[in-house]
Design a binder for these strands. Structure first.
Lengths: 198, 198
DNA sequence: GGGAGAATATGATTTGGATCATAAAAGAGG
DNA sequence: CCTCTTTTATGATCCAAATCATATTCTCCC
């Protein structure tokens, strides 16, 4: 997360999007650096059958879509507002200039990419193995430890819908519902008022 | 890729590994930065059934396993020599010092992570959709464009075994064999002397 | 407060990739 | 050059997640 005063000093604009708006599309070249100011953004793909895969969900303070600013690649996914949102938007040139001039900011961006890569490595390995319950526990544990930063047993409440969990894990929503029920029976998690606790 | 003289100047050692040796294991904390000097290294996971998933294969000049040096995470996968190999090994402290002192090197590492993240985003989305032929074409095209840097039709020869392709894509080797045969029939690729051309 | 839409849930059926078994061909090493 | 291992290949069967269908409950908006 880059300090918002610094972003504004470099000419960033704070742009509003409505729920459902698209910020960019898979395959496009990057023109801007983005960081969430309010609301939530997701990056996703749709396959030929229209099935959605969510690469990540980004909330206040989190940047997204950095790789095409730093390497000769295009966006690997779409970006879409999950709620009404505001986003800091800084041109690629200004962003690279900011990194050059602020080594600590550059290190933070590198740390962000490192965390993102870590998450992806876990997910790709989980998704490639045919074990929905293990997959679901793994992503919930990741969110508990790295996003919620919670340690107590059943202290972490998952604030994702079953459909979002399905889209993040490559499963069908029916499979997620059945697997979370099964995990509850095994004592691996708790469900209260339809919310999952881990 | 960091220039090897620079690595040596910062105290890197050139360490030899035999085919099959492990450099580090999933879940361990990182102590060193690694870059391949000769041979090939893969990063992989095994699931409970012993099925392997290959996160990436690294050849001469390529670094690997960077995220735990840059963020508070552990190795998400094992590292294993695919052939007899030599690897530059630099302590974490020296590595971070090198980045601080050499912004251009830091930017190269950031670019490496960005490319790695791009590849992962493609693969995780592909693996989450149930389309083996599309998945196989997608990874071959990625390797053709970003690793082989080849453009002509059927000019790129894939130097991976069917088993390695299976391990990289989360499929079974039988599925890969049948899918590549089917793609050949569709004219999407060619197979000569059991080698795939795309 | 009510209605519409979204989310959760359950049941039944299908199917494609996994799995198992086996064979042939190529490569590597002695 | 021979043997053993690895890789590629083919055929048959299985099954778990996808898919399809339907119902219930909760949330949001007017």
């Amino acid at each position: 997360m880059i300090d918002e005063n610094l972003l504004l000093n470099y000419g960033a604009k704070r742009v509003a999007f409505s729920k459902g708006d698209q910020l960019f599309r898979e395959g496009e070249s990057a023109v801007n650096f983005y960081q969430v100011a309010s609301g939530e953004i997701k990056m996703n793909n749709y396959n030929e059958d229209g099935k959605e895969f969510i690469q990540g969900i980004f909330s206040i303070g989190q940047s997204f879509g950095e790789p095409p600013l730093l390497a000769k690649v295009k966006y690997p996914a779409n970006a879409e507002a999950i709620s009404d949102a505001e986003v800091f938007q800084l041109s690629k040139e200004q962003f690279l200039d900011l990194l050059s001039s602020h080594p600590k900011v550059h290190l933070k961006i590198t740390e962000t990419l490192a965390k993102r890569l870590y998450y992806k490595a876990i997910m790709v390995s989980e998704i490639s193995s045919q074990e929905p319950e293990h997959r679901i526990l793994r992503i919930i544990d990741y969110l508990k430890q790295h996003v919620g930063k919670v340690e107590g047993k059943f202290d972490y409440r998952l604030d994702l819908t079953r459909q979002q969990l399905a889209d993040l894990t490559g499963l069908r929503v029916e499979t997620v519902i059945r697997a979370t029920k099964s995990l509850e029976k095994k004592g691996e998690l708790q469900i209260k008022k339809r919310k999952v606790y881990r």
